[in-house]
Nucleic acid binder design. Structure first.
Lengths: 219, 219
DNA sequence: ACCTGAACACCGTTCAAGT
DNA sequence: ACCTGAACACCGTTCAAGT
């Protein structure tokens, strides 16, 4: 007597069951297929097999549906940075390099999701403050790496926040140059990684403390 | 007998005269007021006092109208970098710093224009290749600065392109972190400039050649 | 040559009504 | 409690018709 969805693929019951998740999944597919400007609520509903008014039981507006996708993106990005941090304990330089490479790699593999997260669409007034927390958690991983590197005497700089800003700007900037406006256009993942390694080396060279910094060792 | 617009402010003739420029100006105002997602062709036409079909005599589509705005933006950005380059001859480091500060300053003063230029909206297939040339011209200024600095033995790096990529990524990344998603939010122009100076110093420290680079002077 | 008005196929959002 | 259908106010684009 169970009303499961095993023999009627279209609509087992009048009620959907888990429309929230279904809509997010459909919107995610549309996002990567049609781009951030091409995803519409109505097309998402058609893909999910419901009327275009149905989402309003689950999301306050279209912005909240997109917000759910962005939130998951920040979580993924943060998890990759976290893995880079935990992957090589006691080697903050390696951690920072790996986190930077992972950042560029994830973003270029999820271009439209990244554009959604950083393109300015997620700065509306009616967004959940929780989104900001998810984003902060991701960037907190970079903070921890650099803070540990400064504690170990490997990285210099005025304070940790300043170093984080520079390092993050560099990696994020390369990402946006690749994604936005086709200014930089690597042929494939290998070339993308080479560019990421290049800028990571440069920024590491900029924040690394050198033996001749306090006083020349020859003096 | 001249049919000028001196005594009838609304519509001197049935023909507009310079609708092209009028539409660009109206769209630019709407862009900074309503944001990149809020500017519509129909609202632009209403502001210009013409029907919403009129633009199609002057632009192939809405994308070409936005393209005109982006093109002017790249020209302005390039001009600021050019002034930075010409402002202090024989001091590439100062040129690069000034260009970076000008870049961040212009972008944060024209946030929606910058989002239009770099947000990925300007990478459609039906765009004029000329747009790409305007963008390249702007970034050519950075190339010249760094190339001169490398010739003078001030900047290191594998080749000029690599150094340009790193420097430009850093400045562009700070810009996009400030504009996109409100992640970094300076209180005003002064704080914005302080952040820009900070990342410029860091990237300069990363690309600058140091006396201990080829061999230790104490050996 | 340039612009208008009506039309078409979209869009996000709302709301009474259905199940 | 959850979803639908119709409606409203938008949107970009096209095209015959006006000046």
């Amino acid at each position: 007597m169970a009303n499961d969805s095993k023999d009627s693929p279209q609509r087992p019951t009048y009620h959907h069951g888990d429309l929230h998740r279904t809509l997010v999944a459909a919107a995610e597919r549309l996002l990567e297929e049609e781009g951030v400007t091409g995803v519409s609520l109505r097309a998402t509903c058609k893909a999910a097999g419901v009327s275009h008014a149905a989402p309003y039981r689950h999301f306050r507006a279209k912005a909240q549906l997109m917000e759910a996708i962005a939130r998951a993106g920040f979580d993924q990005l943060g998890e990759m940075c976290r893995e880079a941090r935990l992957g090589h304990p006691d080697d903050p330089e390696r951690q920072l390099r790996d986190a930077g490479l992972a950042y560029v790699s994830w973003a270029t593999n999820n271009p439209e999701r990244t554009r959604l997260m950083f393109g300015g669409m997620m700065k509306a007034d009616d967004l959940d403050p929780e989104l900001h927390a998810h984003a902060e958690a991701a960037f907190g991983e970079i903070y921890r790496i650099i803070d540990a590197g400064r504690d170990a005497g490997l990285f210099g700089g005025k304070d940790t926040d300043s170093v984080v800003l520079s390092a993050w700007s560099t990696v994020h900037g390369l990402t946006m140059l690749i994604l936005g406006s086709g200014r930089i256009k690597p042929a494939g993942p290998a070339e993308t990684r080479a560019l990421a390694e290049l800028v990571c080396e440069t920024i590491l060279s900029g924040i690394r403390v050198r033996p001749d910094d306090p006083a020349a060792p020859s003096a």
